[in-house]
Amino acid sequence: MKATSVFEAGNHRWWIIYDQNEGRVIDSNVYVMESNEQSILLDPGGFEIFPQVFAAMVEVVQPSTLQAAFVSHQDPDIASSLPLWNACNSNIQWHMPKLWEGFIRHYGALDANFVGIPDEGGGLVIGGRKLEFIPAHYLHSSANFHVYDPEAKVFFSGDVGAALLPSGHSAWVELRDSDSSKAFDDHIQHAKFFHQRWMPSKEAKKDWISRVSQLDIDFLCPQHGAIYVGENVQRFLSWFDALDIGTAISR
């Protein structure tokens, strides 16, 4: 895996660690936000890819600066590396949906330092930068949060916006020319099934879109696939708005 800068302004940075070498487990992205030599890990990933994620991360961020980790929901591709991270740095505070705390302990970190996020959301300050936990319940997990950095205009969207891409993929849907929709149209084919099948609630989707479209977003960062930049953020929201989801039932 490799680490690439998503956003950088002085000592305020966002990194994506992406394109894993292990093909037997679902390809996941891990994000790190760093500010004033403090950092937070977002959806730290599965147990199996931990060594790669760690090695890629320490090229850009010093592991001792990790103050906190955010876990959007309970899935293993997101949280099963928790005990290993905890072994490396037991000071990390784990922010996760309150509803899932007892489930997540099952990954084997009974003594890790957990902070539950209530259903209505919350926030956190890292290195002087405020992060907002945006509720995204039922998208797809029943207790689920996204993270918004209003200063960097980065929105971590968990499984929303996810795409299943072949190995060797880029970190970006399209970085240079987001005015053209061609790259988006090609990319979204890889996202369609994921959203149709893993996203269960039309109502949740509607509610989420109405809230998220109020935010000023430059980078929409999903946990699988590639980052939507500029015009492609709005393209994605429109596409998702029009998409029929929860298809296992409607069929």
Binding site: F50, F54, A55
Partner: peptide, 24 residues
Amino acid sequence: LQESIAPLIQAHMCILQHRSYADL
């Protein structure tokens, strides 16, 4: 230098990972 630092760290993390199995 970097070409050997990353593998060294990854190797140790693998050991950490497998040690956790063994410990389990």
